[in-house]
Amino acid sequence: MLAAQTAGAPPHIRLQGVRKVMKTERGAEIVALSGVDLDIAEGEFIAVIGPSGCGKTTLLNQIAGLAEPSQGRILLHGKEVHGPGRDRGVVFQGDAIFYWRTVRRNVEYGLEIQGMPKAERRDHAERYIRLVGLADFAELYPKELSGGMRKRCQIATVLANNPDVLLMDEPFGALDYPTKCQLQEEVLRIHTREPRATVFVTHDIEEALFLADRIVVMERGRIRRIVDVPFGRPRDSALRIEPAFSDLKAELWALLEGGHAPAARGHDG
């Protein structure tokens, strides 16, 4: 099924001493990331949380290749990453969608620019359109879809491209609560079906807990702690009301609230 995946070297991401310094308009330097080390295993789901401005989106952009680190390296399969590429699919918070293409032709985009023949492309796209539940809407333009459906379209487009790594930058931040929960469950279902290394940036603790294997808690450009999420898979919405879930949620809250406490390293971070 996942023909692009080669046996042998497992796809994994390694961040080595990543530091990112950005210049403000006035020329002052801001350290957005500093000394970030992180290994992500094949099929692992990582959530990155932290207060706004903590560098979580910057971290994601480095992996996506949308910005180069000032120091340090980002390795994918042991090879250094430079610039964006189809091996790292990104689901953005905003409306990243090709407005002039129908849902079907949106999902076909990545395959089309690779030169996949039309019939093959259509079959392949159809699978992902069905996977995200847009089969009845395939011939509609994005303007005719709801915000949640446009997000599904984006996810299908990125997945159809069969990336090694899935990067999601607060993808559901702009959606209403029920839609958000529904899409979280979809993400879990898809992850179970096609497990791939995922980095999911969010400011929503519950979302992070519900989805991730490990939660990276960031603060002022550094990894403050990495928390293991003990819940097994597959997960469903019943998990949200389990006492263990609430306990861990409270713990993470305290961690984020505790702001300036001395940085403690998690057990396996």
Binding site: A64, G65, L66, P84, G85, R86, R88, G89, V90, F92, G94, D95, A96, I97, F98, Y99, Y109, G110, I113, Q114, Q154, T157, V158, N161
Partner: peptide, 12 residues
């Protein structure tokens, strides 16, 4: 610019 960046990440 977002849509252009999006296309870049899709391999364009």
């Amino acid at each position: 610019p977002l849509v252009q960046t999006y296309a870049r990440t899709l391999g364009a």
